[in-house]
Design a protein around this nucleic acid. Structure first.
Length: 229
DNA sequence: ACGGGGATTTTCT
DNA sequence: GAAAATCCCCGTG
């Protein structure tokens, strides 16, 4: 079920934690592409030197200052990254989606990433070797903010779309299958930034294989039952 | 008009 | 690990 405004209501920290386990859905050429959000970061409107909003409202970050539930897309080198805008119009805050576990349209995502076609027959592998092979293929697809944008064919053309009403991209509530997994979420510092590292503000599913970066586990950090936040 | 910088990824050694 | 790739925007002149 598509999320309503309640999902995007709250501080960027609250929305970031809430979005874990939700599905990011992209519809393109009549096809549904989707994945479960497993890693997020919050970027704040105040006292956050790493936030794009820290330089003030410009053309390129304008949608970050829009109302909660907008999509904010920016470019980094040759790639794109996508964010969910939080807080009321005029407030520059957002949640960066850093990794998804692909669910629907995996073949299309493989093509978009220009990777060898993903073999659906091995998506329920029996041997450990097949399992790790599948995992590494999926990691290439959507573990990392630039990768998932390419897999879902999201770029500046989607910047500013409204996730509440768009027929191109939206967020859906966690499926029963996800709830049954009894995931735990953990907090860490954000990665890939030079300022504001000590603020924390990164959350991910503990031990999930598609979380980006080397630290997929953070056992010493605070953690809680998924869905409790 | 020009040049630098960035919430990244890939492909080397 | 380190460097390249070769983007978009923004600040400067």
């Amino acid at each position: 079920m598509r999320c309503d405004a309640n999902t995007f209501d709250g501080t960027p920290q609250q929305v970031a934690r809430r979005l874990l386990g939700h599905s990011l859905v992209r519809k393109i050429h009549g096809q549904r592409l989707s994945g479960i959000i497993v890693e997020v970061e919050a970027y704040l409107s105040q006292n956050d030197p790493a936030s794009h909003s820290a330089i003030g409202r410009k053309n390129r970050n304008a949608s970050m200052f829009g109302p909660a539930g907008l999509l904010y897309v920016y470019t980094i080198h040759t790639r794109h990254c996508l964010n969910v805008v939080t807080e009321p119009e005029g407030t520059g805050s957002a949640v960066l989606i850093r990794a998804i576990e692909p669910i629907e349209g995996i073949q299309w995502m493989s093509e978009h990433r220009n990777r060898p076609a993903f073999d659906q027959r091995s998506s329920h592998p029996k041997s450990i070797t097949q399992q790790s092979k599948t995992t590494s293929l999926l990691r290439e697809l959507s573990s990392g903010p630039g990768r998932l944008c390419e897999a879902l064919q999201v770029d500046l053309k989607q910047d500013g779309l409204d996730l509440l009403t768009s027929d191109q991209v939206w967020i859906e509530q966690p499926s029963q299958a996800v709830i049954d997994r009894q995931w735990k979420a953990v907090e860490s510092n954000r990665i890939g930034i030079s300022k504001g590292v000590e603020l924390g503000l990164r959350w991910f599913i503990d031990g999930h294989q598609l979380v980006s970066g080397c630290a997929r586990q953070h056992s010493q950090g605070r953690h809680w039952r998924f869905g409790a936040a």
